[in-house]
Each structure stands twice: as C-alpha cells, then as structure tokens.
Amino acid sequence: MTGTVTASLSAQPFFAALADSQREALAGDGTAVMVAAGERLFDEGGVADMFWLIELGRIALDMRVPGRGDQIVETLGPGTVLGWSWLHPPYRWQFGAVARLATSAVAFDAPSVRRRCDADPAFGYAMLRAFTPVITERLQATRLRLLDLYAAPHQLSHADIGPVNP
C-alpha cells in the first residue's frame, strides 16, 4: 500500500521539493481513498486532522452564507493539495469541502505528519517548501479575483474603490 502511495506522490509535482526518502516517509502517513461525487470531506469549523493530494476529480471549497446556502469559493483539481489548516493552530477548517466529481486522492494523517515535521526539521522544512508556493499562488489568485478583472464598468460600480495611487 505504501508503495502505491509513494508512486502517487512521485507522480505529482507538488512534492517535488521532497527528497525520495522524505517522500517515502510521508507516504507512510498516506492512504489512497476514493470520494464519491457529493460526499462531504469536512465542514467549516471542524477539526483539521487530514489533508489530501488530489489525483483525479474535483473538490469544491465552500462556506455557508446565511440566506444563500453553501457558496463555492474555489474548486481544486488534480495535482493540487486540499487542506492547510492542519499546519497551524487552532487546527480547524476555515472552509467546508465537498467532492463535485468522483475523486481519487491520497489522504494524509495530519497529526502524524506534524509530529514528523517536529521530529525532523529537514523534513518539516521540505514540507513547508512544498506548501508555501501553493499557498502564495492561491493567495495571489484570490487577490486577482478580488479585482473583478472581467467586470464591465457598469458591473463594477458597487465595488469600485477608486485608484489607490491617483
């Protein structure tokens, strides 16, 4: 089983920053899982004790907005990692997650990975180097979406805050 997970990790660029031995160690905390379309992986506010490397399928991150139901804020596809809230206290999910398509993934036991990071700083640093670019990229993408770049002038009127450096 660990061999299959190791192969999965090696096939994904996400963990390219890890040395072979580190990927092998990480695979020890991973399990191959199938998630059916419509199945909920976690709810906002729940304990963040897992993260997933998505191999196939699509997961939606959502948030419950009173009066508007579950609003999808972003979808994640193959090659991406779902879940960062396990990295730092209070280890609670900031969003919910639900499979939009049948999804295959590697699910990781987050507390165990955390203990491994604490015990082996080189491994912890490599994990950080794997996660940081993705966190940065998604933060940038969120900022760009805030700019509402595709909006026509009439669609912008409510949100137009004017030039920052006139």
Binding site: R58, A60, E74, G79, R100, E137
Partner: peptide
Amino acid sequence: DSAWSGEVGLVTALIEP
C-alpha cells in the same frame, strides 16, 4: 451560481491540471 457544476477560480488554476 447554484447551477454551476464546473470549476471556480482563476484561469491560471487550470494550467497545472
């Protein structure tokens, strides 16, 4: 919207997959 079953996010997120 609620009828949309596709991707949500910036177009750059489609590059890797």
